[in-house]
Design a protein around this nucleic acid. Structure first.
Lengths: 240, 240
DNA sequence: CAGTGGTCTAGACCACGTG
DNA sequence: ACGTGGTCTAGACCACTGC
């Protein structure tokens, strides 16, 4: 099969692209079922097996989830799911640690060098920076700075309140679906400001997490730096 | 289809199990091609599509790799591949850091509490503990203690030399194929001994990595603790 | 019960890497 | 040219879920 532009692309990848477009545009909303594999097959004039391959690709990309006997649903960043997928901090008994977000501050500024590189922005581009403290059982636990391209989230800076789980907001208000992230970790000594906020001694060892989050088609949409004081806690990474 | 014990299992999972058994037993050696999908289909009396599903499951489990036009090969832990899969430390330019292993020391001892939990060992079981220092450009970089069940690797303690890439040894000499690992990370302050070995100041922030490695069917086969001084370097984790 | 995803067949042809 | 994995069809039936 030859596509309109002359390049040879498997049919299932063409179908996948069409499905992604409908999800990106909001025609198929988060948490809602997409058409059945048979319906997709009929609409695009392919067999069920081919429609299934297209859906399987989206499952692998964390864009949809299959529920046997029910249907296939557009991924939804609920608070719970977002923690399960993107929060990697666990306690001594290997349970995921729940945090609350206590204080916030949001400003628009020119992107710095790290932000321009991680978010793939041109010089002079603006970012919205959100600074916040996350607490565990009421005590400061993580000091976090979240940066997003201002152009991608119009009006976000003017909001009076921001939810703890930002990806839900990105998705529901801006149609930006975070599907993947990379985190770069280092151990650093707490400087005075961080030590004061986290209520630890200056020089205490902190885990510094620098995250870059990616949306559909690999587009970087957020970077954040988190400083954590991990007393009786750890970060969990799964290899392959 | 009903299997001999009466449970209903998809045929492709039955085929997958048979393939795993041949790899585990060494009948199909690391780095060697397994039979083609058509040959597998013929042998087990299933269609190519079903044989393909069985192979796809093994690909997802990191047991085999497909090479288009060539065949499907049993995964091999070569030095290069092992670094690419299990080494997560990168330099400031985001290149993977190569390390050399400079000094080693191996002892057999009773498993401690952490080892018993991570390796799923009974009280009184013995482990082989390997202590070693890994260097970067000649300077100490990672201080590492590797623990494996002594019963699983007979004769390993008596070896005069050990390679830098242990998983290659586990696989080639003992038929133990590491397919997955979990790493638990914390930031700690260097104690005197670690500081001296790594040539940093006592109290310097170190990244502590506690790894558990799993073989086929989820069996834990190794745990290791690594202390890294990450000057101009970071640990990379990929989320989903 | 109807409708969904999950498994399975027996073919066919294509794209790729090697000889 | 050959054999491999990769794509694709047009069916079929099974297993699960909710009504």
């Amino acid at each position: 099969m030859t596509s309109p532009d002359g390049s040879r692309r498997p049919r299932y990848l063409h179908v996948r692209g069409q499905l992604v477009e409908r999800i990106r545009s909001g025609a198929w909303a988060p948490g809602q079922p997409i058409p059945s594999e048979f319906d997709i097959a009929r609409e695009f004039g392919v067999s069920q097996g081919t429609a299934r391959m297209a859906v399987t690709a989206l499952v692998a990309e964390n864009v949809v989830v299959r529920r046997q006997g029910l249907g296939t649903y557009v991924c939804e960043h609920t608070q719970e799911e977002e923690y399960a997928r993107f929060s990697s901090v666990f306690d001594g008994e290997r349970r995921r640690i729940a945090t609350d977000t206590q204080s916030r501050q949001a400003v628009v500024a020119g992107a710095n060098r790290t932000e321009r590189r991680d978010l793939n922005l041109a010089a002079g581009a603006k970012v919205l920076r959100i600074r916040r403290v996350r607490t565990r059982d009421g005590t400061p636990f993580i000091l976090e700075t979240v940066s997003v391209p201002a152009a991608l989230f119009p009006g976000l800076a003017q909001r009076e309140t921001l939810p703890a789980t930002l990806y839900e907001l990105y998705q529901k208000s801006y149609g930006v679906l975070v599907v993947r992230a990379e985190e770069r970790l280092t151990a650093i000594a707490a400087d005075r400001a961080a030590a004061k906020t986290l209520r630890v001694a200056a020089g205490a060892p902190l885990l510094r997490i620098e995250r870059t989050a990616f949306a559909l088609e690999g587009r970087p949409v957020e970077c954040r730096v988190s400083l954590c004081y991990l007393a009786d806690a750890h970060y969990l990474a799964r290899l392959k």
